[in-house]
Design a protein around this nucleic acid. Sequence first.
DNA 1: ATTTAGTGGATAGTTGCGCTATCGGATAGA
DNA 2: TCTATCCGATAGCGCAACTATCCACTAAAT
Lengths: 210, 210
Amino acid sequence: MRMAEFSHTSGVPVATIKYYQRERLLPAGQNATPNQADYGATHLDRLRLIRTLLEVGGLSVAATRRVLEALDSDATLPEVFEVAQHVVSAEVDPNLLDPASLARIDSVMAGWHVSPENPGRLAAARVAQSFEAVSQADARGWFGRYAEAALIIAEADLDEIDARPDREAKTETVVVGTVLGDVLISGLRRAAQEHVTSTRYPSSESRHHP
Amino acid sequence: MRMAEFSHTSGVPVATIKYYQRERLLPAGQNATPNQADYGATHLDRLRLIRTLLEVGGLSVAATRRVLEALDSDATLPEVFEVAQHVVSAEVDPNLLDPASLARIDSVMAGWHVSPENPGRLAAARVAQSFEAVSQADARGWFGRYAEAALIIAEADLDEIDARPDREAKTETVVVGTVLGDVLISGLRRAAQEHVTSTRYPSSESRHHP
DNA sequence: ATTTAGTGGATAGTTGCGCTATCGGATAGA
DNA sequence: TCTATCCGATAGCGCAACTATCCACTAAAT
């Protein structure tokens, strides 16, 4: 398949494909003569993965490059996991973090084996700090139930990874699962919020239904 | 308090504060004479809320304006909830959605009372579609356990809102909770992933500890 | 053998966003 | 009166993610 067809079947403009190649997200076509290259199923899969990470996962091009590099390398599964985790986490400077907020988060993760520099731990602590500053209330109960839910999710994630047959499939699941899992839980949370609202307050929450 | 002090105590540059005022996130100072305004605790609170939504919640300025407008209006709690939900959700065109993916998500939400146009439902369906396209596997089990976790979270959210004394506090909690809850669960999920990994594979997952 | 459509590679331009910087006229406070 | 500060308006900046052209070249159709 040549460029025009590649672009057409993938639905991605030619200029954008070239941009991804420049940004080293997508390898050049195979059997490249000076002015003609060949694209196959591998390239289509890769392009679909790229678009998923960018559009559904909301990653930046730079972040996408980082996880793809990890996938292409011979990195071990934990190494890929760590790259994926960092890529979806906003950078949080631990020095700007109120130790009390960190302690609050650590207390809801009691018994967990988590390293201090885990990006999720820092992100959660920042949320705790901001939430309590804005709402001026103790939200420890709220955090605790989130932690319970996080544990269920993490078990599901690991099971899903374990279910893959080989290392390659596992690493891809790590990346895609880490990135899309955040979006999935957010979406399901909104649906669940509507459900819980409507069961608790049967009359008041009808959503634009005459 | 005048502009210089307002900027200093909040840690936000003067030019940025003026920008927020232009963008109608922040009201002008009180008792404004032609060239002097007064800022008080109300303005500080509002600015802190704005920065939290922008920096921690990752909202755009436009999205922040929309939720603040809802907060300032006399909208009912469900109305504010709906604005908040839309603001944190990527717009998904239902026409581009594979009905099979929608059905998959609906099946894991069996028994839930959720309207078809719930933005979370559509977002989840898009994730289902993308994930299964990329991983070429049936992930219904994965989705189902996420739904279980989402239900726990939604109950916690609603309890937290119910705990607020008055409508004003409730609506603010709706907005802040909706926005920060997504970040919180993502963070805790990463921590839980490390925990579960390290308990399942005791040796292999040590995170840069010599 | 000669067109001709298509290609790779390079480079420049566009759009949108979140600020940031500067300016001019006015005024509060010493 | 004088100086520091303010408001309001406008313009500019830096980054990210494309998008659009151009050119030399070549595979393939005639």
